[in-house]
Design a protein around this nucleic acid. Sequence first.
DNA 1: CAGATATTTGAACGATAGTTCTACTTGTAC
DNA 2: GTACAAGTAGAACTATCGTTCAAATATCTG
Lengths: 186, 186
Amino acid sequence: MSEEPVDGRRARGAKRRAEIIEATLAVVLREGAAGVTHRAVATQAGVATSLSIYYFATLDDLLVAALSSVADSYTARIRQIIDGPGDKLRGLAELIVESAGPGRDKALAERELSTLAARRPALAPIARHWRENVAALAATLTDDPLAVDALVAASDGLCTAILIENVPADTEHVHRVLAHALGTDR
Amino acid sequence: MSEEPVDGRRARGAKRRAEIIEATLAVVLREGAAGVTHRAVATQAGVATSLSIYYFATLDDLLVAALSSVADSYTARIRQIIDGPGDKLRGLAELIVESAGPGRDKALAERELSTLAARRPALAPIARHWRENVAALAATLTDDPLAVDALVAASDGLCTAILIENVPADTEHVHRVLAHALGTDR
DNA sequence: CAGATATTTGAACGATAGTTCTACTTGTAC
DNA sequence: GTACAAGTAGAACTATCGTTCAAATATCTG
C-alpha cells in the first residue's frame, strides 16, 4: 500500500482531499446531487472555495469521488453478506429495507448519482458496481443466469419502490419478493 | 369537459401554458432535469422569461408538469398493451427495451424526475404511476400478489440496467427475465 | 539559513440564475 | 367608443455560480 517516503505537504493534502470528498457526500445527502457546488462543498469542509477547485478541477470529479465513496460502502456491505454466515438472501433483504430508514439518505445519494451516470460517462462504471455485487450474491444461490438477472433487477426495483413510497418497509415481504424473483422457492 | 364560455384570452393562455410544458419536457430530454431553468424553458418555447414565471411560479411546478406529461405517455402505452391483443408480457418487454433506443431520452427523463420525487413530495404521486400501471398489467397475468410485486420490481430494475449500461437491449432476454420474475413459466 | 515545491487563502471577474417591475398588447364587458 | 382584465415583453435587480490569480503559508531539500 504505502511506499512513498511521506511528504508532509502531500500527506496533509491527501487528508484535505479526503475531507473534501466527505464534505461532498454530506452535501449530496443533505441537498441532493443538484446541490453540489464548489462553494457549498468548500463551506461544508470549512476550506476556501478555491481549494475545492485545486483538488477537483470540475464538479464531475467531485461527483465521481462521492459516488465512489457510497458505492464502496455498499460493496463492503454486500461482501460482508456474501462471506458471512446466515441466509444471504435475507441479508440482502435487510440491506434493501435499510433504505427506508437510517440508510435512506445514503441510498438516495446512490440513486441520484447513478441517475447522473446515465448522462455523465465518467460515473457509469462506478454506478454498475451495486448490480455487479448483487449478481455476485445471486451467483452463490443459483446457477441459472436468468435467476441471477431477475434477482438483480428485482433488488434494484425494490430499492426504487422503497425510496419513492417513503414508508417503512417490511423485511419479510422484501425477502419473499426476492425469493420469488429468484425462483428457487418453487 | 368544457363548460366555460371560452374567454379568448384564457384560451390563448392555456395554449401558451401547454407550449411551455412541452418546452420544459424538451429541455429535460436534452439536458436533464438539472437543465430546467425558467430562462432555458422560455427560450425553448420562444417566449419571455417572465412568462414562464407567470404560469409556473416555481421550478417545481414546471417539473411536476413535465413529469406528468411523461408519466401520462407511459400510462397510455401500458394501457394499450393491457387492452390490446397479443402477449402482454412481451409487450412490456418491448416497451422496456425501447429505453435502450429511441425511447432513451424519455425513459431518462422519467427516471430523473422520479428520483427528484424522493426529495420533492409534489412529484411523488406522479412518480408512482409507472409502477401502478405495471402492477395492473401483472394483475392480468397472475393472481399471486408476490408475483405482481416481483414483476414490478424486475421491470424497474431492468429499466435501470438498460439506462446505465447504455447498450442495445435484447427483447428476448428481457422477456425471459420478466417471465422468470413473474414465475409463471415454472 | 536560502530556495524550491505544495498547499491554502481571499478577493475579484464574468456569466447566469430567479425574481420583480413597469409598460404594452390583446380580448372582454358595457 | 371607454373601462377593465388577462396575457406578454423586456429591462433591471440581486444572488450565486465557476473560475482565475496573486499573495501567503507550510514543508521539504540542501
